[in-house]
Computed example of a mutant assay.
Amino acid sequence: MPRNQQILLDNRPQGEATASNFKLVATDTPPLQDGQVLVRHHYLSLDPYMRGRMNDSKSYAASQPLGEVMIGGTVGEVVESRHPKYAVGDKVVGMGGWQEYSVVDGNTPGLLRKVDTTHVPLSHYLGAVGMPGVTAWYGLVKIIDPKPGQTMVVSAATGAVGSAFAALAKARGCRVVGIAGGPEKCRYATEELGFDACIDHREHPDLKSMARALKEACPDGIDGFFENVGGHILDAVLLRANAFARIALCGMIAGYDGQPLPLQNPALILINRVKIEGFIVSEHMEVWPEALKELGTLVATGKLRPRESVAQGLAAAPEAFLGMLKGKNFGKQLVKLV
Rank of each mutant, 00 (worst) to 15 (best):
W288F: 13
Y86K: 02
T151F: 14
A245H: 06
V88Q: 06
I143W: 07
Y256E: 01
T74S: 12
Y101A: 01
K58L: 10
L337R: 07
A241L: 11
P306F: 03
T190Q: 15
S309K: 07
K23R: 15
K185G: 12
S209R: 07
E227K: 15
D90Q: 05
D206H: 15
H124D: 14
A19N: 09
P306L: 08
E191P: 03
V310S: 02
I269M: 12
A157R: 13
D200A: 08
T151S: 12
E286C: 03
H201M: 02
L38W: 02
L295V: 00
V237S: 06
A291P: 14
G89N: 07
G258Q: 12
G133H: 07
C198Y: 15
V335I: 13
G94P: 04
R187N: 03
M95Y: 15
G127N: 04
T117M: 14
L122M: 10
P132R: 12
L234V: 09
E184S: 09
D105L: 09
D90M: 09
L126E: 07
M152P: 02
P205W: 09
Q5N: 12
G230E: 07
R240S: 11
G224H: 06
Y138R: 12
L325Y: 05
G251V: 01
E191K: 15
L9K: 01
P2N: 04
Y256N: 06
K170C: 07
F165K: 02
E308L: 14
M54G: 07
A197D: 09
G258A: 09
R51C: 06
G15T: 02
R40M: 04
G181M: 06
N107S: 15
P48Q: 00
M1V: 15
S209W: 03
M1F: 13
K336G: 02
W288S: 00
T29C: 08
F244P: 00
L298H: 09
R240H: 00
D145L: 06
E16W: 14
G331S: 05
A169D: 05
L234W: 13
S163T: 00
A156G: 09
G194M: 01
F279M: 13
A128P: 12
K91E: 04
A160M: 05
G296F: 05
I253K: 05
A316E: 08
K293Y: 13
L24I: 13
Y188W: 13
V299Y: 11
P48M: 01
Y86G: 14
V93S: 13
L268I: 11
K85C: 04
A166Y: 06
T74M: 05
H83W: 13
A167M: 04
E184F: 05
T301V: 10
V153T: 03
E16Y: 15
G159W: 04
V281S: 02
